[in-house]
């Protein structure tokens, strides 16, 4: 059974069709890319899947459950993690705190009475789990640094780590290479590969950077003007004439 299924998703903004009957499927543990020129509707689709925007028509399901009208935080608890194109970090907190907040969010609902009885303090196993994620992402050396002192590339890794702490089954990355240079992007791809190997999470990548997509995902959706114009195995799709004309400017890559 597919992990994430979107069927006939349509969204218009003031009469402009941003998404026109889009279908999308992601299998458990699969690496999927979503590319397209600016304004193709990638971000709108992303927002519809995460619950930030509500589609006018169509359905979104996750692990057999209908996500219609489900708010962002409940989708997160079902197992959809994400990162942001313009990094969204908790200012004033350390790297470790970021992971610990996410860990606490995964565990419980934050009932006030538990805090009042002193049950809300940090526990050993929470610290251990955050430690393992810090190791995996290579953030152990900056664990106690305030988040503001980190570079953009590492900030994005913190976002990945924060999402991983919620034990997602699907990780959605919104243009993770934006603002990073070539070597930072390569390092990020390497880390993501490792995350995928160790945790077996499905990853959806929305990207501009075709090189990054080519080296990372096994299946690709290409959007243009609010429609999916091609989908399939990455190498096939990137060789497709239609895709090259819409997205790559006609010339062979």
């Amino acid at each position: 059974m597919s992990l994430l299924v979107a069927r006939g998703v349509r969204k218009t903004f003031a009469g402009i069709v941003a998404l026109d009957d889009v279908d999308l499927e992601v299998e458990p543990g699969e690496l999927v890319g979503l590319i397209g020129p600016n304004g193709a509707g990638k971000t709108t689709l992303f927002n519809c899947l995460l619950g930030i925007t509500r589609p006018d028509r169509g359905s979104v399901g996750f692990a057999g459950r209908d996500l219609a009208r489900m708010p962002v935080y409940r989708r997160a608890r079902l197992g959809i993690g994400r990162t942001f194109q313009r990094v969204e970090l908790f200012s004033g907190m350390t790297v470790r705190d970021h992971l610990l907040v996410a860990e606490r969010a995964r565990r419980g609902d934050g009932a006030l009475w538990k805090d009042v009885l002193g049950l809300g303090r940090l526990r050993r196993d929470e610290v251990d789990r955050s430690e393992r994620t810090l190791e995996l992402l290579g953030l152990a050396d900056v664990a106690d640094r305030p988040i503001e002192s980190l570079s953009l590339g590492r900030g994005r890794l913190v976002e990945v780590g924060r999402a991983l702490m919620t034990e997602p089954r699907l990780l959605m990355l919104d243009e993770p290479s934006s603002g990073l240079d070539r070597s930072e992007t390569d390092a990020l791809v390497a880390t993501l590969h490792q995350v995928h190997r160790e945790r077996d999470i499905a990853i959806v990548l929305v990207e501009h950077d075709v090189d990054m997509v080519r080296g990372f995902v096994s299946r690709l959706y290409v959007m243009d003007f609010g429609r999916v114009i091609a989908s399939g195995a990455t190498t096939d799709v990137l060789g497709d004439e239609l895709v090259r004309r819409a997205y790559l400017g006609g010339a062979a890559p």
């Binding site: 995460l50 930030i52 708010p71 962002v72 935080y73 409940r74 997160a76 608890r77 993690g81 994400r82 942001f84 969204e88 970090l89 908790f90 200012s91 004033g92 907190m93 705190d97 907040v101 996410a102 969010a105 995964r106 934050g110 976002e159 924060r162 999402a163 702490m165 919620t166």
Partner: peptide, 15 residues
């Protein structure tokens, strides 16, 4: 504290 830092990110981890 997380909400004060970034509301969208806090919601994205399930808060």
């Amino acid at each position: 504290r997380a909400l004060g830092g970034s509301e969208v990110a806090a919601a994205a981890v399930g808060i």
